[in-house]
Amino acid sequence: MSAPAGDPDASPVRVLVADDDADIRDLVEFKLTQAGYAVEAVPDGISAWEAFAANPPQLAVLDVMMPGLSGIDVLRKIRESEFSTVPVLLLSAKSRDSDVDTGFAVGADDYVIKPFSPRELLHRVNGMLARAR
């Protein structure tokens, strides 16, 4: 499955992926790239924020559990920035109710719990981008 067909001349939709776990980072990047997105993958919260500020993507996938700045910390900064409407998907470990609550309270658009289905993640990304248009 690939990203919804849009204008064939438009540049690919840019997605930022942040996760300190290399496995997850790589597989999400691969999945989204195969689907036609242009992915920038970073390993921690600080890099995520810096990448976001330098070149705001159309969507961000953030892991909640990252050393230093967590996904929620980064989300908070995004929502307080001028690009506050960028859709954000949070990745979190199983049954972290507080993460879910805090995440939505701070302004996440969607949530995926680990262990996750990569296919489902792609569905959600597609869905979020479609709604954002």
């Binding site: 921690d44 919260g45 600080i46 050393p67 230093g68 700045l69 967590s70 910390d73 900064k77």
Partner: peptide, 8 residues
């Protein structure tokens, strides 16, 4: 320290 978290 950034935003109350140790980053390095």
């Amino acid at each position: 320290v950034v935003s109350g978290r140790i980053v390095r």
